[in-house]
Design a protein around this nucleic acid. Structure first.
Lengths: 149, 149
DNA sequence: ATTGATATTGATAATCATTCTCAATAATAT
DNA sequence: ATATTATTGAGAATGATTATCAATATCAAT
């Protein structure tokens, strides 16, 4: 999402003022690929805003999720991760049922994704739901945990 | 999983004794389709075992997950749900980013699932991971929350 | 069947991510 | 510049899940 559209878009989701902490957290997601936990976002933001509070981080992450600017992902360790929404990117994640970590797997083939989209959007329309994003999730053991079994 | 294989299978995952609470919880999953929270399992078990403790429920759910007898699903409300593993059933769940509830969507078409399996198992082999199950997850708004926006 | 070793239990306390509260502060419209 | 009020940060509160530990129940060996 381009910088200048933040405010306009945010207004629809309860973000009425553009503040330092919010600017900073959005920047962090623009600059860091990957799955950041709230704690990690907090530590990164801390470099620029030493007084930022954890509550602000959570509040901002919440709003950005509602805006569909970031995706919230919850794993088995009961900790949420957040990642920037990128157009047309469908993730395949491995969730290790043993250690709780999240791993990104190679993307599915293009036409498989196209067929998935078609299938899902058809169902979505019938059910009156609003699809923000979707992904394929694998439950299983990561390489490390598989070895130690 | 047939009753008589429980013990044999469980032994590999740290379940060395077959006890009343464990028998009861496994029965609950056999008899209840759907996504049960730990709290719900606790209340159902309570009917038969009035003294069962919450800790036992969590411990048992943990072992049954490790055994791949049930699937653990974590939603946006920070509460886990568990469901019996059924062969060849690939779920498509909607996770409402607003209210946290989980909804089951109509199953994907047979051949789409077959192609997904092939693709995923190929990647799994390359990465040395152990796939217990996989599912498609949609992040978005449920019918109710969509209306109230 | 009895026994002994020990896995499992239930009650409770502890943990840890997340949310709430509220007075102080800062962003925006005017 | 000022008034309005959304937002902040600190710390307390919440709520799901885990750890602790003495008491108990299971099962293998006898």
């Amino acid at each position: 999402m381009p910088y200048r559209r933040w405010k306009r878009h945010g207004h629809r989701h309860g973000m009425h003022r553009m503040t330092e902490p919010r600017r900073c957290i959005m920047k962090i997601f623009e600059e860091n690929a990957g799955h950041l936990s709230a704690e990690e976002v907090f530590m990164l933001a801390n470099r620029y805003l030493p007084n930022i509070g954890m509550a602000t981080v959570y509040r901002t992450l919440d709003i950005l999720s509602q805006m569909n600017y970031i995706n919230k992902i919850v794993s088995y360790d009961g900790r949420a991760r957040y990642e920037l929404v990128r157009d047309n990117k469908i993730h395949t994640h491995l969730f290790c049922v043993n250690c709780g970590r999240v791993f990104e797997l190679p993307s599915l083939s293009e036409d498989l994704i196209e067929r998935l989209k078609k299938d899902i959007n058809g169902n979505a329309e019938n059910m009156g739901i609003d699809v923000h994003s979707f992904d394929v999730r694998i439950q299983g053991l990561c390489p490390e945990c598989k070895k130690n079994k």
